[in-house]
Design a protein around this nucleic acid. Structure first.
Lengths: 255, 255
DNA sequence: TCAGGAAACTTGTCCAAACAAGCGAGCCCA
DNA sequence: TGGGCTCGCTTGTTTGGACAAGTTTCCTGA
């Protein structure tokens, strides 16, 4: 049973995508939407709040809501999982484990994962048969057995872990910056050493706030970009100076 | 007059920052918070929704809310304006206009800004007396006069435009990727040609959805990173393949 | 001792109502 | 014609209540 406000949000989203409400136009008023869907105004407000969070519509007190764009924001799952994102967008994709090993956690890793031993995995992922992403992931020890059971060419680690032990990634913090390709990066991605890579470092946790993994993902320049739609009053994107939280040279695989 | 839910959110945020609610611990229940602040449960829910949007707390139906982190999310203004962000974080910063000129808009620019003539400005910005950012901004013609009146070493364009013509940047779309430094980038940022830069392209609009500017900002690697906290159900960050929306070689200044 | 289940607790969804605050259009007057 | 003002519309804030759905705790029975 889907919530009522979600169905209203879905319907509005489809109308925006279909061009019923073009970019720049005004959305119907809350009162009108409430009447049309036979719902209370509060429920309609929840629905448009969803669209506002997706960056599709903006609002000002006193004036009708405006349509800001048509690009649909993907779910956290799609942001977190390369495979889910690629599939949702109709790309061919693949993955291959290059190496993995258990080792004691560094001090920084212990602080992030609350785990004394960790499993480190190096994966290479491809999009449209081109290598585009080098993934260096460190898993907390309590998920290590499940990760080790995965096949080397597992397409979606996220989904496999959900099916094997019911693990759901619920929260994440992501740090995005640019770095030069190291020797290993260059070899795997088939670019020159020192060429630009887009790096996404992240720590993800379960519903309960229990840390699962910490990862250093590097995309070949030009292959992937991150996009954020935001507005005054609601934006989760933050700029940070220099290198925080993650220490240098922490992974076994040279970079 | 600040809204009640905002004051409750502020108080909770301060308590989290002060360590009253450590990371990983449970927040008081909505009922308890409502009683403590003599407010209705709905108001308290709005307050914690603010914190959830900032990525500070997470929630699951049935269980108490958990504290996920302590890093405070900055405002859209701080994300958009280099100066506001730098000041809020206590950095020394500066800026200098390197060149500017009016010219006809390209087809892509016309589509983005709805303006036939544009003003293009090249700025170099520094952090802690080090050049860290090259900004190539294209303004719609209706703001061009105000921008041209600004001094060449204007520290905060955003604030200056607000004070001169009451302009407020309200919505924005941002695309983040990595690119190699061009000859001009390299000279201005004092790095080698081809070295990695973090690029942020954006289009911003006013409250009414009217496009104001489109910009290509390039940060020296290691100087700045972007950070996102997110959760299942609410995240505005999107991955995109390849180069969309922005065409190549659109700016007069070689890159 | 341990597994299962019931009960208490907590968050999620929805409703109805009221007032505040800001916007826009139309009207009036100079 | 142009500026200012009022009024209606629309979104923002807050309250109080009710039920649904999921989690945690604790107790009971095997």
């Amino acid at each position: 049973m889907v919530a009522r406000y979600e169905r209203i949000a879905d319907e509005l989203r489809e109308e925006i995508l279909a061009g019923v409400h073009p970019v720049g136009s005004q959305l119907p008023s809350e009162a009108e939407l409430a009447e049309r869907h036979a719902a209370a105004r509060g429920t309609v407000r929840q629905a448009v709040a969803v669209l506002a969070a997706e960056g599709l519509v903006g609002s000002r007190q006193g004036a009708r809501r405006i349509v800001l764009g048509r690009a649909r924001s993907q779910s956290f799952a799609e942001l977190h999982s390369f495979a889910q994102w690629a599939r949702a967008n109709g790309y061919r994709y693949g993955g291959q484990v290059i190496g993995q090993r258990r080792r004691p956690a560094s001090a920084a890793e212990f602080a992030r994962l609350a785990s004394e031993e960790v499993l480190e995995v190096l994966r290479l992922r491809s999009l449209e048969d081109e290598p585009v992403l080098v993934e260096r992931t460190v898993y907390a020890s309590w998920v290590a057995p499940a990760v080790e059971k995965l096949p080397a060419d597992c397409e979606s680690v996220t989904e496999a872990l959900y099916e094997s032990i019911g693990l759901v990634f619920a929260y994440g913090e992501h740090l995005i910056d640019a770095v030069p390709a190291g020797a290993q990066d260059a070899r795997l991605l088939r670019v020159r050493r020192g060429s630009p890579l887009l790096r996404q470092r992240r720590v993800t946790t379960t519903h309960e706030g229990r840390p699962v993994e910490s990862s250093d993902d590097r995309y070949r320049a030009g292959s992937v970009a991150f996009s954020i739609r935001n507005s005054i009053g609601a934006n989760p994107l933050v700029r940070q100076a220099g290198d925080l939280r993650f220490g240098p040279g922490e992974h076994m695989f040279e970079s």
